[in-house]
Design a protein around this nucleic acid. Structure first.
Length: 775
DNA sequence: GTAAAGACGCTAGG
DNA sequence: CCTAGCGTCTT
């Protein structure tokens, strides 16, 4: 795919030059029209607030990270004069004039007739702009003209506006009301503004507005929708900051099919571009991005109106395009991250069905169980205390009961920051034989966690029987996707067993006899498919380990994965490592292998490994050592990552995703070790993320082309995709998923020839709690 | 004196 | 190693 990129060929000197030229051509600035938010269609949308609340959820979900509200439009008088002069002196002078008009006559545009508006041109930083026109008010001939302009356009700059007058490029003057009363009480997207740059006259913009609110079933929406779709499907380069949010709003308000309708939309997103350049510091807002990420040359210069904001957007994207190309990230951006945007927007709108009654009834069951455990804890401690308070628990365990003094051989962990005696799971496990309390506390914690996070927490997000999670592309430095509000990627997989003894109180698993009545709860059980449809899960088997095999080129690992039998991979590895026969491998051996393998991937040291293995540090060291002797390539790979990072200051995945790790040369051993683990881990985790994203894009492409199969993507859990499939199509989808996902390595062949197969396992069922393995 | 925000500890997923 | 989210405690 080739994308022209005019703005990128335009460094800042050029921009200044262009502006100066236009200045000559267009003396004076008499035609300026207020493009303030007041000029934009502000139809009332309160009746649609419920259905559109999600659109802005992302905006309010991280209020603490919001920075620098309204910096673009900040007063020109407090910017340093020297800077202003050096960059674009004439521009700034004009900008002030424009701002004056904006301030004094905000009502002007709204009073104008459509003809007047259409006829009004407007100059912003060197470009001719036609003032905004709402598409719904256009005549058929005007619409036809617009479509012609679209088909001949060279670039389109897009953004959402909101009912409070703010936009995607300009935060509200006052922080939006926090969503305290209700989770969905938020501002509402108001319109899509598009600045269309015409090929014929490059310095000319056509500026059109598509209403989002109050569309309903009006006749006008059909024609409007077609024009908007034409824009989205056109091959013209399009730019939007947070395109996912834009797409989300469009899909909802124009009632588009969330899965197939939008797959081909391609919009460049500078937010994602910035994140690729420095994944540890993703931009939150457009103005924040200008401040921290780009050169700073755009700051505080622009007059405060939509047109200049959009023009900035184009310039910034051009700049970022150059940067991406220089850093060899353009392919990743255009082939992986950009195609993912509509898929995520579609998943957000699609949502997943949840049985709220089941969540509530599970919650009530746990409420009673928690009370029981609580009573037993008080009894064992000798007095009531706040079990969920680690401070009080520390007092009870280590000051009153002095349990730590009863296990002198064991080194008990300390807390991270304050270096106090930890009450974590691993510590409590070590104290389990000394006193009944530790186990009771563990049970209590588990129950409270499940109830508060996965039952009550989820229940708050159920709306109309669905949960619509937010999918965040730029929050994880590893390149993984992240879900939030609620997080649907960490719903417990393992069931909770509740055993009741004769008194009805909870007893632990080991002491419960087989005759005691048991209740089993699966936290994934309340997620259920539609009538006539089933959930369908496809996951890559041990993908990170396979990536490690590929990257390290370790002979033994490669052999194990390529001689693929149906035998469990960790059993095979254990055989190779300890020289055993397949049948001699015990479950404990397999578990230990698995933990060591992942500790290598995670880069943990012997101490941490000893904790997870529940063994001594010496043994953990010995295990790791003998493992690394057998799998020699793994160690060389880790060292290669570290030295690469030392040389370049960053490490790279197989698709060139990179991460800057500056602490890699730190004098502080602890800090440096941490950086080394990060470096090794990023290469593996990030490469796996690359592959999973590629598979996701490919499978969605194939499914949308085969419009006969009814399948929707609901959830991505890193190496697993959860679909909902029509029962009649299950067999066909099974074949497609298996073939397409397992062929992922061949897709990336131009970039990387994977040396290992990536087998996919499939399962299906009516609820997420009970998926049956397919063969 | 109360409420909101941040630090911290812990645990669910991969 | 990478995350999100809940509860407690401090400011």
């Amino acid at each position: 795919m080739v994308h022209t990129n005019t703005a990128s060929e335009c460094p800042k000197e050029m921009i200044a030059l262009k502006m100066a030229q236009t200045e000559k051509l267009l003396p004076g600035n008499q035609n300026s029209v207020s493009m303030d938010s007041s000029s934009v269609d502000m139809k009332q949308l309160s009746t649609h607030a419920g259905s559109k609340g999600r659109t802005q959820h992302r905006q309010t979900s991280k209020p603490s990270k919001r920075e620098n509200i309204c910096s673009i439009g900040s007063s020109s008088s407090d910017a340093p004069t020297a800077v202003k002069k050096r960059v674009v002196p004439t521009f700034h002078r004009k900008a002030s004039g424009l701002k004056e008009k904006t301030k004094n006559k905000p009502e002007k545009l709204s009073q104008m007739s459509i003809e007047q508006v259409m006829g009004t041109t407007h100059r912003v930083s060197g470009a001719l702009v036609q003032a905004a026109k709402t598409v719904t008010s256009m005549s058929p001939s005007e619409l036809a003209k617009l479509q012609e302009i679209i088909s001949e356009s060279s670039e389109m700059l897009m953004m959402l506006t909101y009912t409070d007058g703010s936009t995607q490029l300009r935060e509200p003057n006052e922080p939006r009301k926090r969503a305290s009363a209700s989770l969905h009480e938020e501002g509402v997207a108001n319109s899509v503004l598009v600045a269309i740059q015409r090929k014929a006259a490059k310095k000319e913009y056509m500026f059109v507005s598509f209403p989002l609110a109050g569309l309903g079933k009006e006749n006008a929406s059909e024609a409007t929708r077609n024009v908007l779709l034409e824009i989205l499907q056109s091959s013209t380069r399009k730019v939007c900051f947070d395109a996912q949010e834009l797409m989300h709003a469009i899909i909802i308000n124009y009632s588009l099919d969330p899965q197939s309708g939008c797959n081909k939309w391609v919009i460049m997103d500078p937010k994602i571009a910035c994140w690729l350049l420095d994944p540890d510091n993703p931009p939150v807002t457009f103005s924040g991005m200008l401040k921290t990420f780009v050169t700073g040359k755009y700051n505080d210069q622009a007059p405060n109106n939509h047109l200049t904001h959009l023009e900035l957007l184009g310039l910034v994207m051009g700049d970022l395009t150059n940067k991406l190309q220089r850093k060899n990230l353009w392919e990743l951006f255009i082939n992986l991250e950009v195609p993912l945007i509509p898929i995520l927007a579609g998943m957000e709108v699609q949502g997943i069905q949840v049985n709220q009654k089941m969540l509530i009834s599970y919650s009530n069951i746990l409420k009673d169980e928690i009370k029981d455990v609580e009573k037993q804890c008080y009894k064992e401690a000798g007095h009531p205390f706040q079990i969920t308070s680690h401070i009080q628990l520390r007092q009870v365990l280590f000051v009153e009961l002095k349990l730590d003094e009863q296990c002198p051989g064991q080194k008990l962990a300390r807390t991270n920051v304050q270096n106090l005696k930890s009450t974590s799971e691993t510590v409590l496990h070590k104290l389990i034989d000394l006193h009944p309390l530790p186990e009771l506390v563990l049970t209590h914690r588990q129950l409270v966690k499940l109830k508060s996070t996965y039952l009550d927490g989820l229940s708050d997000y159920v709306s109309g029987g669905y949960i619509h999670t937010s999918w965040d592309q730029t929050s994880a430095a590893s390149g993984r996707l992240q879900s939030s509000n609620p997080n649907i990627q960490n719903i417990p997989k393992q069931p909770l067993q509740l055993h009741k003894d004769a008194n009805g109180s909870v007893v632990n698993e080991t002491t419960a006899s087989s005759t005691t009545p048991a209740t089993t709860l699966w936290m994934r059980e309340p997620f259920y498919s539609h009538d006539g449809w089933s959930f369908f899960a496809a996951d890559f088997q041990s993908i990170e380990l396979r990536i490690l095999a590929h990257l390290s080129q370790d002979a033994v690992l490669l052999k194990v994965f390529n001689d693929a039998g149906s035998t469990d991979i960790f059993v095979q590895l254990t055989c190779e490592w300890l020289g055993l026969n397949l049948d001699d491998v015990k479950t404990a051996d397999r578990e230990r292998t698995k933990r060591i393998v992942y500790s290598v991937i995670y880069g943990v040291g012997a101490e941490r490994l000893a904790e997870t293995l529940n063994d001594t540090k010496e043994n953990a060291k010995a295990f790791t050592k003998s493992f690394l002797v057998k799998f020699k390539g793994v160690n060389t790979f880790a060292q290669r990552c570290i030295s690469e990072c030392q040389r370049h200051g960053h490490v790279k995945t197989i698709f060139h995703r990179h991460r800057l790790i500056s602490n890699i040369s730190s004098q502080n051993f602890h800090v440096r070790s941490h950086a080394e683990r990060q470096a090794v881990n990023f290469v593996i985790q990030g490469s796996a993320a690359d592959i999973c994203k590629l598979a996701m894009i490919h499978i969605m492409k194939v499914l949308s082309e085969k419009n006969t199969v009814r399948a929707r993507l609901l959830v991505q859990i890193h190496d697993e995709l959860l679909f909902e499939v029509h029962d009649e199509d299950i067999n066909e989808v099974k074949g497609i998923l298996k073939t397409v996902m397992e062929s992922t390595p061949t897709l990336g062949e131009s970039i990387c020839q994977l040396k290992v197969p990536l087998p996919v396992s499939l399962s299906y069922g009516k609820t997420w709690g009970h998926l049956k393995q397919m063969v």
